[in-house]
Design a protein around this nucleic acid. Structure first.
Length: 608
RNA sequence: GCCCUGGUAGUGUAGCGGCCUAUCAUGAAGCCCUGUCGAGGCUUCGACUCGGGUCCAAAUCCCGACCAGGGCGCCA
């Protein structure tokens, strides 16, 4: 090793030792005579000193000084020297190595560095450069303390998961990344085949069918840190390629899977955060989640629950509500922003109007017609529109929403699913703006009791709620019955309002699986074409099985409080799915296309 | 496909019709400095994304492109 210690390692107990350190020159301070260098690696930084008056006669003082004259920030150097105590009063208590320093008596410049395009070192008032610059020079971005920490954190989470799953008998099995395309699900990334021109592999959206076939193969307890690929537009928590902790078990029921997962996260909690995690996780039905939180991924750490007041306000003469409620499937929901939750108290109905106006603008941006409000006062509910509401209606509202003095009631009206969705966003917005999430512990919740099918809102066609492999709650279903009424044995794992996992018990009877496909409107021909191999696998004694896939990028970014999952991925892609560090995707030589017998339809002039 | 926000020295920003030959910080280059730690001091360098338009006058207003981010749709 070029170094005897890491740059974050030395302490007072090491004083007198002769050490060799290597790292990057992060800062240096030249006082004309004595010079200080902060030598950093991802473990920390140590002050190394050039102090001409302190050297013994056998040290090449001039030579070291000349080498040091040539180094700049982020030069890679190795130094040898003796660890010594700092001059009393000059210790740096912000740095764990701050009581000591190394007096350089030998130095080697291992590499130079160009002038860096942005600040790597944490500095007061320094803000991050634009995302694309960070991504272009990702290797420099990764040198930053925060990113280095994130990568290590992620490693610890994954290592902990691996250790635990191994300890309870799971085995890690890799499945192919060159797979078959299927019409279901997200858009595929396609890979042309050279040996069979005109045919394509797809990159896996998840190892779903492979892991089920592993169960048929008797693996019984499988897991994998599986890279998944979906060619759908990105979000701050969505990348075209992402990592799932994928897991499947045989001879189990839902409770076994829940226990396994809860136990898994308990171990991760202990290993990585050093804390106990409360289990079992609470469960909430999809219906409750939508009604109370307006989303299938509820953040249940705070109240501000949505209250359905459709039946009450029906009896008002408020024109806007009447118009909305005239349409089928409409609803009026209310969020009570309790005065006790608000940081700056505005108990007077006339105060805080600009605040309400801001919320109204926001609601319009969300696609709502607007937002109606009332403030609870000593004289009851008050606002510009209470005159349209009878006394009894107002009193019912007070009771239903539990309104007490100073509370602000916010109403959204429109089609139920839109109102719920907007209400869910409103709830999160109010929580964020009033600091309700600050200092909160993390909270898992299982989302359960989901339907097997759902109707496409546009075409009305029946589609899977999760995917076609979900086992019906009863194990079977009547394909001539009311499809939308059946429940599936599926569940989502939600953490702090983000879906971080989704799984189910699977159909292990081929006949039920066939029925499932038929119910989804799949022809016998296509079933054969796309799933014959899989259906046949189920026919060779498939055991009952189920599992889950959990997004590790999201999980780590939530624990670390990152704005985006890009901050826990070493080389993420930008919003357009470009990798800025290596400029992919790129055009390829015509010869490569010829070999694959492919032709581009893109006009050459339109490409760069 | 759509909506929103932004684009000013290498980096982060201020300016938002004339006070702009564009602010401040950081950086880079050079000099000074023997206990700093985002060292300090002095000097120098370096920018209005592009194309139209309005106007006596545009970094600033308008239109359009391009780039980036957030969101909707999409994500079985």
């Amino acid at each position: 090793m070029i170094k005897t210690n890491d740059c974050g390692a030395l302490r007072s107990k090491d004083i007198g030792q002769r050490v060799r350190l290597a790292g990057w020159v992060r800062f240096y301070r030249d006082h004309g005579g004595v010079r200080f260098y902060d030598l950093a690696d991802s473990f920390g930084s140590t002050q190394v000193v050039y102090d001409p008056e302190a050297y013994q006669s056998n040290v090449n003082v001039v030579g070291i000084g000349q080498l040091l004259n040539n180094i700049g920030r982020e030069y890679v150097i190795a130094v040898k020297g003796v660890v010594r105590e700092r001059v009393p009063g000059t210790e740096d208590d912000r740095n764990p190595t701050g009581t000591v320093e190394v007096l350089i008596d030998e130095i080697e410049i291992l590499n130079s560095s160009k002038v860096i395009p942005f600040e790597i070192a944490e500095q007061k008032n320094s803000t991050l450069p634009s995302e694309d610059l960070r991504l272009k020079y990702r290797y420099l971005d990764l040198r930053r303390t925060e990113m280095a920490y994130n990568l290590r954190f992620r490693h610890k989470v994954l290592a902990s998961a691996r250790r635990y799953l191994d300890s309870i008998g799971f085995i890690e099995v890799e499945t192919p990344t060159l797979t078959r395309s299927s019409q279901e699900g997200a858009r595929d990334f396609l890979v042309p085949s050279r040996t069979m021109p005109g045919t394509f592999y797809a990159l896996p959206q998840s190892p779903q069918l492979y892991k089920q076939m592993l169960m048929v193969g008797g693996v019984e307890k499988y897991f994998q840190l599986a890279r998944c690929y979906r060619d759908e537009d990105s979000r701050s928590d969505r990348q075209p390629e992402f990592t799932q902790l994928d897991l499947e078990m045989s001879f189990v029921d839902v409770e076994d899977i829940f226990r396994t997962i809860e136990s898994l996260y308990s171990h991760i909690w202990k290993d990585v955060l050093g804390k106990e995690l409360r289990t079992p996780f609470p469960r909430i039905t999809l219906e409750d989640a939508l009604n109370k939180y307006g989303t299938d991924a509820p953040d249940i750490r705070f109240g501000l629950e949505l209250v359905d007041v459709t039946d009450i306000v029906k009896c008002s003469s408020y024109d806007i509500f009447q118009k909305v409620l005239g349409k089928k499937g409409s609803a009026v929901i209310c969020v009570n922003l309790k005065s006790t939750l608000v940081k700056e108290k505005t108990l007077d109905a006339n105060v805080g109007r600009s605040e309400v106006d801001r919320l109204i603008d926001w609601a319009k941006q969300q696609g709502m017609g607007g937002l109606t409000w009332m403030r609870m006062t000593d004289e009851g509910l008050s606002s510009n529109i209470v005159k349209y509401f009878g006394k009894e209606v107002l009193e019912s509202l007070e009771r239903r929403t539990d309104a007490t003095k100073g509370d602000l009631l916010l109403f959204l009206a429109g089609p139920r699913h839109l109102v719920q969705k907007a209400g869910g966003h409103l709830r999160m917005k109010l929580a964020r703006e009033n600091g309700l999430l600050e200092g909160m512990d993390h909270q898992f919740v299982w989302l359960v009791d989901c339907p097997l099918f759902q109707a496409d809102p546009v075409t009305g066609k029946v589609a899977s709620f999760h995917h076609p492999f979900v086992r019906p709650v009863e194990g079977d279903f009547d394909e001539n019955g009311e499809l939308l009424s059946f429940k599936g044995c599926s569940y989502d794992l939600v953490l702090n309002g983000s879906e971080i996992g989704s799984g189910s018990m699977r159909n292990h009877h081929a006949e039920v699986q066939r029925k499932m496909f038929r119910a989804l409107g799949m022809s016998e021909e296509r079933m054969r074409e796309e799933f014959d191999f899989f259906l046949e696998a189920l026919e060779f004694g498939a055991p009952p099985h189920g599992g889950i896939g959990m997004g590790m990028d999201r999980f780590c970014s939530i624990l670390l409080g990152c704005e985006s999952i890009r901050d826990v991925i070493a080389f993420p892609k930008n919003k357009k799915f470009q990798s800025l560090v290596d400029s992919s995707p790129k055009k390829v030589d015509q010869a490569k296309l010829d070999e694959l017998q492919l032709m581009s339809l893109v006009d050459e002039d339109e490409q760069d």
